[in-house]
Design a protein around this nucleic acid. Structure first.
Ligand SMILES: [Mn+2]
Ligand SMILES: [Mn+2]
Ligand SMILES: [Mn+2]
Ligand SMILES: [Mn+2]
Lengths: 218, 218
DNA sequence: AATATTATTTAGACTGACCTAAATAATAAA
DNA sequence: TTTATTATTTAGGTCAGTCTAAATAATATT
C-alpha cells in the first residue's frame, strides 16, 4: 500500500507534531530522517498529492487524518514487535528498536491482530511507551519527569524519554527497571543531582540529565 | 546488505536450479519473478558484477557460492517464519506463505538465531519442507511422490510439491494432514486415481494430480 | 538450406527516492 | 532599515529497478 519510505516520513512527522506542536518544518523533518531538505520538499509534494499530508509552500507540513492513521498503525506495529522481541525471544530492551524499525513495515492486519493476542494485548512496550489499539486509540500517559519531583516525593518508574541503548544500558547497570518504586531522597542544590531510594532499599545518585529522562507516575 | 529484489532473484535462481538442473535461462527467471526478460538481463549483469551469480551472454545463469549462501539463508528465514506463524500465532498452513515472503527479508542473524531456538530448532516447515541449519546445511528428504507407489504400498505423508492455498485447503477438506500414515488401497487403471486408506480407517479417493503432488516417506 | 519462431540482448525511457548547486524567501543582526 | 544568515524551494542529476520496442542470436519448421 505505502512504501517503507512514506511510512517513515509519516512516523517522523507524527512524532515531531507530538513533540513540537502543530506543524513541522521541512528542516526538522530533514534532520530527523537524515535526509537533505531538498529531498524532503520533493517528497512533501508527492505525499500531499496522495492526501497523506497537508503541505503549503513555506508553511510547513502536517498529517492528514489518513496520514495520522497510517502513522499510528506503524507505531502500533513497532511497539508490538518490540514486546515480542523482549517477552518472547529474550532480547534486552536496548536491542530491539532497530529490529522493530524493520518489522513495523510488514503489511498484514491479520498478523498484527494475532500477534497482539499472542502477546496478551499489551498496553505498553518494553520502554513504557503506550501501544495504540487497533483503532488507533492511545491511553495518554499521565506520567511526569522525575526531574519535576521534589525531595520527599515518590512515584513508579513508568518510562523513558531517552531511548538510546547507552541510556537503557546505564539504567540496567544502576539497577533501575520499569515498574520500580522510586522515592526521591534528596535533590542536591549545587548540580540538581537526584539521590533515589529504591524499593530494594538501595540508594543511588543520578545526574539531572538522568532524572530528566525518566518518567514516573503518581 | 542485499536488497529485497536481489534476494528474490537469488531465491528464484536457487529454486530453478534445484528443479531444472544446472543453469537457468533468463526466460525461466522472468516467468518465475513475473518480470520482463529485458529487465532480467539487466539485473543479471549487475548481480554478476557483485559476484552473486555466474552469467554469460546467451548461456544462462547460475549461483556463485556466495549467492547460494544468501539464497539458502533466505529460505531458512522463510521457513522459520512459517513455523512461527503456524505454531505460535495460529495461522493455517495455507495462509503463511505470502507473509513469510515479507518476513524472510528482515536482516538480523541474532533474530533468526533466537527465533530458531524459540521454535525448538524445527527441522521442517508447516509444508514439510526442510529447514537448512545456520550453516546452510539441508537434510535432503528421502520422500517420494505418492504417485510412484503401487497398490498395497504405504508411507507417511511428509510433504507437498504443490504449495498453493487451493491445494492445501483441499487436503484439509479431505482430511489429509502432514504426518498421517497412508496406505494405497487401489490404483484405478482407467484414470490413475488413488484410493487411500487413512490411519483413521477412512477411505478416500484422490485424482492422479493429487497423488502426484504428495510426498511420502518409506 | 531457407524461413519462421522463439529467446536474448541492446537501446532508450520511466518512476521513486535520493543528491548538489543555485535561486528565492523569511528571519535575525547590525 | 539595510545587510547577513538561515530556511526553503527549484533545477538538474544519479541510481536501482522496472518497462517497451527494436536488434540479434538460437532453435525449430518446412
Ligand atoms: Mn523503538
Ligand atoms: Mn519502544
Ligand atoms: Mn512458503
Ligand atoms: Mn513452506
Amino acid at each position: 500500500m505505502h512504501s517503507f519510505t512514506e511510512e517513515n516520513y509519516l512516523k517522523a512527522i507524527y512524532k515531531l507534531q507530538e513533540a513540537n506542536g502543530e506543524t513541522v518544518a521541512p528542516s526538522e523533518l530533514a534532520k530527523a530522517l537524515a535526509i537533505n531538505a531538498a529531498s524532503v520538499t520533493d517528497m512533501m509534494k508527492k505525499m500531499a498529492q496522495k492526501k497523506l499530508i497537508l503541505y503549503q509552500k513555506m508553511k510547513g507540513v502536517k498529517l492528514s487524518e489518513k496520514g495520522r492513521q497510517v502513522a499510528i498503525s506503524i507505531i502500533r506495529n513497532h511497539r508490538l514487535w518490540e514486546v515480542f522481541l523482549v517477552d518472547k525471544l529474550g532480547f534486552r530492551w536496548d536491542e530491539v528498536h532497530d529490529l522493530a524499525e524493520q518489522l513495523e513495515h510488514i503489511q498484514s492486519e491479520t498478523l498484527i491482530h494475532k500477534l497482539d493476542a499472542y502477546l496478551g494485548h499489551p498496553k505498553t512496550d518494553p520502554h513504557g511507551d503506550p501501544i495504540p489499539d487497533a483503532n488507533g486509540v492511545f491511553v495518554k500517559s499521565k506520567s511526569v519527569l522525575l526531574s519535576s519531583i521534589n525531595a520527599g516525593g515518590h512515584g513508579k518508574f513508568t518510562g523513558v524519554t531517552d531511548h538510546s541503548p547507552a541510556f537503557l544500558n546505564y539504567l540496567d547497570k544502576v539497577g533501575l527497571a520499569l515498574g520500580d518504586a522510586i522515592k526521591v531522597a534528596q535533590v542536591e542544590e549545587f548540580d540538581k543531582s537526584y539521590t533515589l531510594l529504591l524499593k530494594t532499599k538501595k540508594e543511588i545518585t543520578v545526574s539531572f540529565k538522568v532524572a530528566n529522562s525518566l518518567l514516573v507516575s503518581g
